[in-house]
C-alpha cells in the first residue's frame, strides 16, 4: 500500500523540487499544502505517513505547525525542508519533534539517507 505523503511549502517550485527528489522506488501518494493552515487541516483529518515541511511561510509558519503537532500529537514523521539553516533554528525544530532537518535546495542523497535511517524506505 502506498504511504500517504504531505509536502507543505508556499512555493510551487519548492513543492515540485521536493516531490522530484523523493526516491523513485518509494511507493507514495503525494498531497500538497501551500501553507501551514492547509497542512494542519490535512494532518488533523487524514492519516499522513511522512510530512515534508517548509518553515518560512506567510501566516501559519512551519514552526507553528510543529508546535501544534507537538501539542496535539498528530503525526510522528515530519521532516523539515528549509532555507533557514541557522543552528538555533535547526535545534528548535528538532526539539519540537521534527525527525530531521534538510537544507534547501533538497539534496536527493541526503533525503534518501534520512528515509533509510528511520526505516521509512
Amino acid at each position: 500500500m502506498s504511504i500517504p505523503v504531505l509536502i507543505c511549502d508556499d512555493s510551487a517550485l519548492a513543492r515540485k523540487q521536493v516531490k522530484k527528489s523523493l526516491p523513485a522506488e518509494w511507493d507514495v501518494e503525494v498531497q500538497f499544502a501551500t501553507n501551514g493552515k492547509e497542512a494542519l487541516d490535512i494532518l488533523r483529518n487524514q492519516q499522513i505517513g511522512v510530512t515534508f515541511l517548509d518553515l518560512t511561510m506567510p501566516e501559519i509558519d512551519g514552526v507553528a505547525v510543529l508546535e501544534a503537532n507537538h501539542a496535539e500529537k498528530l503525526v510522528d514523521f515530519i521532516i523539515v525542508v528549509s532555507a533557514d539553516i541557522q543552528p538555533e533554528m535547526q535545534k528548535r525544530v528538532i526539539e519540537l519533534g521534527a525527525l530531521a532537518f534538510i537544507q534547501k535546495p533538497v539534496n536527493t542523497t541526503k533525503l534518501k539517507e534520512i528515509l533509510q535511517q528511520y526505516g521509512l524506505l
Binding site: S11, T56, D84, I85, P87, E88, K104
Partner: peptide, 15 residues
C-alpha cells in the same frame, strides 16, 4: 524561492 535560499544563507552567516 531562489531568494529565500540565498537569504537563508546570508542570515546564517550574520547570525
Amino acid at each position: 524561492e531562489l531568494i529565500n535560499v540565498a537569504m537563508g544563507r546570508a542570515s546564517d552567516k550574520l547570525a
